[in-house]
Amino acid sequence: MKNLKKGIYLIFVQICFLIINCHGNYTRPNASIADPYPTTFEETYPGIDKLDFLVFGDWGYQGSDSRQSVVASAMKTWADNNNTTFILSLGGILSDHSKSNNFYTSNSTDHEGVDSIYDPKWKTSWLDVYGGKLKDLVWYTVAGNHDWYTNVTAEVDYFWEIDQRFFLPSLYYVRTVTFGSKKIKASFIHIDTDPLYYPYDSLTNVDNLKATLLALGLNTPDAIESKIKWIEQQLKNVQDSKWIFVVGHHPLISGNCSSIYYMSRLPPLFEKYNVAAYLAGHVHKLEYQEVNSTSHVAYFTTGAGSKTQFEGCDGPSWFMPGGGPEGTRGFLHVWIQEDGEKLGFEFINSTTADKQPVSVYQGSLNPRALSQNVSNSYKVFPSGTLLMIIFVIVFLS
């Protein structure tokens, strides 16, 4: 009887959580997973004193040199101690790492990504690894290249058919988050960067990436241009937000990482529409490019969720060493205070089980400021003004 009451209570709490945050009432569109989700997901967290979230990518590797479980343990500690609201998962989901980086599958019979919604990796690489509060949080997800290598559609299907805590309703979607007593609004634009990063004609048929780009119609310049136009439109749509974040898999720190294929088209958009930060993985290191005289956008790379590499982006302001047994594994911890006037962040080193996880770099960002040309172009009339205009039009007619 005691277990039954506990089970009923947990179900009740889950239902309340879903209702309050607008989760669980989604309708799957009759469309390709490459079509952006048609409406914005709106979340409200009125009773919190800060918006707290963890950010990391490339976390699914489980080879002999993996530190996935150690990073997961550190994330649990941070989530428990900071009342974390959600997780941003930056791709490399349930994946093993790129052979181009000398990272192979866990064994000779393994496969990249997942093969279906019933793949055992859902349990062994996700559900069984991230415990405590991490099991209760929603993981807002984008797909990375290794998620494409077997069956990226299965990851979207998993959200719709199995567990909506693994939040991937489409390869492209937008969320707005309103939190605290002052109703601060933050917007998150989640994008799939794979079509922007890999020139279709240069790909081979070694894995499913080329075939899937073709099957989803993401293999042409026109298709890529349509996604860039969609990204720009979403940036226009959220100009009333105090904070705007873009979330993708591939990094954009200046230099080699920001000049690849169509990725170079993104930073000018981020500048134009006053994005606060771009969050990415793919490079298996912890790196950061701070706001400077030429860019008011902060760029974060946090792709060390289970393994590291020596190579990174060319121009970070700060980075932790990667590669080898002692390369830094870890994640990014971000919070926005209740009044919305400051964002704090810290990179967490959680490399080895015999050492306490430690904050190795801290910083802060100021809220975005609307540029005059953008704010004037997309200004919304106050309700009273709009009513007056309608009254005048009706009166004159």
Rank of each mutant, 00 (worst) to 15 (best):
N274E: 15
Y262W: 15
V297M: 09
P268L: 10
K272H: 05
C257R: 01
N256C: 09
F245V: 05
T294W: 08
G281N: 06
P267Q: 09
L279N: 08
R265K: 14
H296N: 15
K285H: 10
P268V: 01
S264Y: 10
K285Y: 04
H296P: 08
E287M: 15
H249P: 07
Q289G: 06
M263R: 13
H249K: 02
V247T: 09
K285A: 13
L279H: 02
L252T: 06
Y261F: 15
S264P: 01
T302M: 02
E287A: 14
N274G: 14
S254C: 04
A280Q: 07
S258P: 04
S254L: 03
H284Q: 14
K285W: 02
I244N: 04
T301N: 15
L252S: 06
S258Y: 07
Q289T: 09
H250R: 10
F300A: 08
E290F: 01
F245N: 04
H249D: 14
S293P: 02
V246Q: 07
Q289E: 15
L286Y: 11
Y262G: 00
H282A: 12
T302A: 15
T301Y: 03
S295D: 13
E271N: 13
G255K: 00
E290G: 13
N292Q: 09
L269S: 06
K285D: 10
H250L: 09
A277I: 00
P267C: 13
Y288E: 09
W243V: 01
N256A: 12
H284W: 07
T302V: 13
A280D: 07
A276M: 00
V247S: 08
Y261P: 11
L266T: 02
